[in-house]
């Protein structure tokens, strides 16, 4: 299975995402924002970073990149698409996911290992988790406050499309502690925390078992392997 990782000007975590994909057992395929070519991949990751220096709005300029024409087409025809952090911001700017992300309520950039609850395993990126499971993956953002109008929030909650929720103190003021959401079909998922930074023992978050042994992020990529190959 081949999973494309798109590099935009200012992407930071594209190679980390590729590494996560490789460790999960799939082949990462580097893709370029300026192309109109998805190279026949089976799934897509829009990585974290600061595309175009966060100018205009986070992810806004990247959402109008040439390759996004093909990304939107693929997402609408059911291809699994995961947006991480800046990638999540792009997916909202491209209207593939509802809502938007604004500056953290407290005004500060937050970087920490973040506890999350997996609220839905009914997506192509979360099927390898248990419903209600607690996981820990790194969070690092300045503009991660998830907002949407009341009707949208009610619909997301009612349809089980809130995929991840922050546990403990809300890091950024997100409505209902929302950390990640899915589209109706469950093939497009976006979240602010970073699964690709928790895929290899020795380099992940601390766990009760050992320092830096957390690999909860790996199951995002294992999920998509399962669902695509099923």
């Amino acid at each position: 299975m081949r999973i494309g990782v798109i590099t935009f000007p200012g992407s930071l975590d594209d190679r980390d995402a590729a590494r996560g994909i490789r460790i999960a057992g799939a082949e990462p395929v580097p893709l370029w924002h300026g192309d109109h070519d998805l190279q026949g991949v089976d799934a897509l990751v829009l990585p974290g970073g600061f595309s175009y220096g966060d100018y205009l709005r986070c992810g806004a300029i990247a959402a109008h990149s040439p390759i996004m024409t093909e990304v939107i087409e693929a997402a609408n025809s059911g291809m699994p698409v995961l947006g991480i952090c800046n990638g999540f911001q792009m997916l909202t700017e491209a209207h593939l996911l509802p809502g938007g992300l604004i500056r953290n309520e407290a005004g500060a950039f937050v970087c920490r290992d973040q506890r999350l609850r997996v609220e839905s395993t009914n997506t192509q990126w979360t099927s390898a988790f248990e419903e209600g499971e607690e996981i820990v993956i790194p969070l690092k953002n300045g503009e991660g406050g998830y907002i949407a109008d009341t009707a949208t929030i009610e619909r997301l909650e009612g349809e089980g499309r809130v995929v991840f929720r922050y546990l403990g103190a809300n890091p950024n003021g997100s409505i209902n502690d929302i950390a990640g959401v899915a589209n109706e079909r469950g093939n497009v998922v976006g979240l602010m925390p970073h699964p690709e930074h928790a895929v290899e023992p020795g380099f992940g978050p601390d766990t009760a078992a050992a320092m830096r042994s957390g690999v909860d992020g790996l199951r995002f990529f294992q999920s998509v392997l399962q669902t695509v190959l099923a």
Binding site: L56, R57, A60, H64, T92, E93, P98, G99, G100, I102, I147, A148, D149
Partner: peptide
């Protein structure tokens, strides 16, 4: 379509 995002602005 570009200068603003109707969801937040």
């Amino acid at each position: 379509t570009l200068l603003s995002n109707g969801v937040i602005e």
